[in-house]
Write a protein that binds this DNA or RNA. Structure first.
Lengths: 228, 228
DNA sequence: TCCTATAAATGACATTTATCATTTATTTTT
DNA sequence: AAAAATAAATGATAAATGTCATTTATAGGA
């Protein structure tokens, strides 16, 4: 089995401040698993007894509304960690994590995490910073959901998707989402999302190649996202 | 000057886990101040070099949108603390804190807070839990802003205001907000908020006594907030 | 207490967004 | 490869929400 000490994924997350000994302990206790597209890594309301470190693959974090609609709160990719909020706050998981493609993830038991939190203040601080940053993003999202029209939110979301996932060899945003998932991200009806995407294409701001989306004019999208 | 060891406010927040010695240190270094209605305790983008402990009075936490609109993210009252997120994440303050009425607050310098964080793991953990809980609420808010109609969000907000501030001796929600502030909480136009409040009154669900709002039928509001 | 400024309320109307129905395209299964 | 299932696209229409204009009420200052 692979070794946490040599894993490059920890470069990208809070695990980077762990000592060699701590990483060896993680290696000894961790399990690697494959999550198939569509499967859940975490489920809203369930408890979790460890931390997931994403090796490869993408997932969406969602919340089911009282009216049965899915709201996508955040996208997660290789190098990100999941489950630390629940471990730290000793509360059930608040969001569903559903694989958008096949994923490889490592699972590190809660006990090892808590031990490092106790022994390694820098590690704790990194986890706190991670959660603080999420809170900061969430507050921005509240404001935008509440006050920006759907068109602006779509533009914003496309920019942010490219920011998160980058582009493939054809300059398309490197993630495959259904129109429904895009709609569930910006908080609108699927038909509205489709119509607004078509308009953006007609205006030459983006190109649509099946499910792949290519941003042609980033400045224009930025303006739209700010209401111009 | 008053003494942190004897202050009952710490019962309500993360400071409750501090030792007597730590509280004495806080007492020695803290400053008490009065914030007048309308004044800012914190300002978006500014840095902050300490933690505020609210003794008395209420404030709103807001974010200014790119379009110039104010979004109210959260309400804060006596017993709450402010500024710990910024201290922990070493980032500028993300929200404005504006007094809704005259406030009495204590300011504890960053150095003392950081020392307690280092020495007192239970204190750190309480701060983390506080931030985690805020994140959890924020995610719920995103989902509701994105997917619920304005009427539902108004009902939800009225219930939550009564939850936070309680009722006065006439059973009215114990906080004075302008219609514009209510609109900025639920994310709608002031006129829409006014109209929906009038409708709720006409339907006998609430009563409007000037700026004071009395909830007459909590169950009915709960149903409305869930789309029935 | 009156005057002025600000907030609340309401109507008319425009715009945005959702819903329903249907067609067309794309995947998936057999 | 054909059939079936699912997703995307589009039109027609309804519903929700925002904007502007105006009136009425309330609060704060001279």
């Amino acid at each position: 089995m692979s070794n946490c000490s040599h894993c490059i994924m920890k470069r990208f997350n809070a695990l980077k401040t762990l000592t060699h000994d701590e990483l060896e302990r993680f290696s000894d206790h961790k399990t690697s698993l494959i999550i198939k597209k569509g499967e859940n890594l975490m489920t809203e309301g369930n408890s979790i007894n460890g931390l997931y470190c994403i090796q490869d693959g993408k997932c969406k974090l969602t919340k089911l509304n009282t009216n049965g609609k899915e709201q996508i709160i955040k996208f997660v990719k290789g190098g990100d960690i999941l489950g630390h909020r629940s471990i730290l706050s000793e509360e059930p998981v608040g969001l569903n994590a559903t694989a958008l493609e096949d994923m490889r993830v490592c699972f590190i038991p809660k006990g090892d995490i808590l031990e490092s939190i106790k022994d390694n203040p820098q590690f704790s601080l990194n986890l706190i910073k991670n959660i603080s940053l999420q809170l900061s993003h969430a507050n921005t999202a509240i404001s935008q959901m509440a006050q920006k029209p759907v068109k602006d939110r779509l533009a914003e979301t496309l920019l942010s998707l490219e920011e998160i996932f980058g582009v493939d060899n054809e300059d398309c945003i490197d993630v495959i989402l259904t129109r429904e998932e895009i709609a569930n991200t910006i908080g609108t009806a699927t038909e509205s999302a489709i119509r607004l995407l078509s308009n953006l294409k007609k205006d030459g701001v983006i190109d649509l190649l099946g499910k792949k989306i290519k941003i042609l004019n980033k400045n224009s999208l930025k303006n739209i996202s700010e209401g111009y």
